[in-house]
Simulated scan of single mutants.
Amino acid sequence: MTEAAMASPDNGRLKALGVLVAGGAIIGLAPILVRLSDAGPAAIGFWRVTFALPLLALMALRSDGGVGAPSKFALIAGLAFAGDLSFWHYSIHYTSVANATVLTNLTPVVVTIVAWLAFRQRPANLFLLAVGLAVGGAWMMAAGRGAGAPGANPPLGDSLALSTAGWYAIYLMGVAAARKSAGAARVMFWSSLASAPVLLAVALALGENLTPSSAAGWAAVVGLGVMHVAGQGSIAWALGRLPAATASVVVLIQPVVAAILGWMLFAEAMTPLQMAGGMLALFGVVLAQAASRQRKPA
Rank of each mutant, 00 (worst) to 15 (best):
Ser159Pro: 08
Gly136Gln: 12
Leu117Cys: 12
Gly137Asp: 09
Gln121Trp: 03
Arg145Asp: 15
Ala143Pro: 00
Gly136Met: 13
Leu160Phe: 10
Pro150Glu: 13
Arg145Thr: 09
Pro154Thr: 06
Ala147Trp: 07
Arg120Phe: 01
Ala143Lys: 11
Leu117Tyr: 08
Asn125Ile: 13
Pro150Ser: 13
Leu126Trp: 05
Ala124Leu: 04
Gly132His: 10
Val131Asp: 11
Arg145Asn: 13
Leu128Asn: 12
Gly151Thr: 02
Phe119Ile: 07
Gln121Asn: 03
Gly157Lys: 08
Leu126Tyr: 04
Ala138Lys: 00
Ala115Met: 14
Asn153Leu: 13
Pro155Ile: 02
Asp158Phe: 13
Arg122Tyr: 05
Ala118Leu: 12
Ala134Asn: 02
Pro154Asp: 03
Arg122Cys: 03
Leu129Thr: 14
Asn125Asp: 15
Ala134Trp: 01
Val135Arg: 03
Gln121Phe: 04
Ala130Glu: 06
Ala149Cys: 04
Ala138Gln: 00
Leu160His: 05
Gly146Asn: 01
Arg120Tyr: 00
Ala165His: 07
Met140Thr: 02
Leu156His: 00
Gly157Cys: 06
Ala149Lys: 04
Gly148Arg: 06
Gly137His: 12
Trp116Thr: 14
Ala130Pro: 12
Ala138Val: 13
Ala161Met: 11
Ala165Ser: 12
Thr164Met: 04
Leu162Gln: 04
Val114Gln: 02
Ala165Gly: 13
Gly146Arg: 02
Ala147Met: 10
Leu156Asp: 00
Ala115Asn: 12
Ala118Gly: 01
Ala165Val: 09
Gly146Cys: 01
Ala124Gly: 15
Leu129Ala: 15
Gly151Glu: 02
Gly157Leu: 08
Ala142Tyr: 08
Gly144Asp: 09
Val135Met: 13
Leu156Ala: 04
Arg145Val: 05
Leu156Cys: 01
Phe127Pro: 08
Thr164Gly: 03
Ser159Glu: 01
Leu133Phe: 09
Trp116Cys: 10
Gly132Val: 11
Trp139Tyr: 04
Gly132Lys: 03
Ala149Phe: 13
Ser163Phe: 07
Val114Tyr: 08
